[in-house]
Amino acid sequence: MEVLGIWIAAFLTLCIFSFLYRDNPFYRFAEHLFIGLSVGYSIVVTIHQGFIPLAWEPLSEGVNALQSELTSEGTPETKEALSGLFKIIPIGIGLLFFARLSPRHTWLIRYPIAILIGFTAGAAIPNVLQASIFEQTYGTLTPFAAMHAGSLSTGDIVGAILITIGLICTLVYFFFSVEHQGPVGWLSKVGIAFLMIGFGAAFGNTVMGRVALLIHRVGFLINDWLGSIF
């Protein structure tokens, strides 16, 4: 089974690498198989880790508890399990997604979409405030407190000042309410320089990440696949 897995993985790896020559049937086969498998795996994970434990099991327990209550065999546990019946509401709302398939009832899809968007927007505000605004501002200003206490080296002081200047200049670049002329224009130009360094660093890291993956795949072909033959 293990050797078969190595051979299949090697075949699919070579199929995808064949695209480096040009588009061909082997690449298209692997590409479409990848799409099918990925979608299938997403369905399996979503159902097993989302729908079954959060909706199906509480609902089943709720139905069983209701039956017990109706036959007067109710216990405190069954009373608690009755709350699982409320899961029918989100399931019903979720089923409204399929209204999309009926032209007359397409508008019903707005209900689940509105709930999901409202949820996401509501969840985003406190989380983004905390993680992206307060924490980032805190991280920028904290070194100045340490600087005041005299516990920073010269290099760290220069670094903290550079980070603050870079942050302010980058924000000025994104501030479009005033024309970028004069001092604002100069600050904006410094902001562009910092942004270019940031993009260059991101690009360099991305390239190295992809090259690491390439080395890993070539290593697999040489060591695991060819190693299993010779």
Partner: peptide, 23 residues
């Protein structure tokens, strides 16, 4: 240093955009 500064600027800008759009 410079990468962190630019990333923080982008994060702050995007976050303000997310909050205003969410509202």
């Amino acid at each position: 240093i410079p990468n962190l500064a630019s990333r923080r600027g982008i994060i702050l800008g995007v976050s303000l955009g997310v909050i205003s759009q969410s509202i």
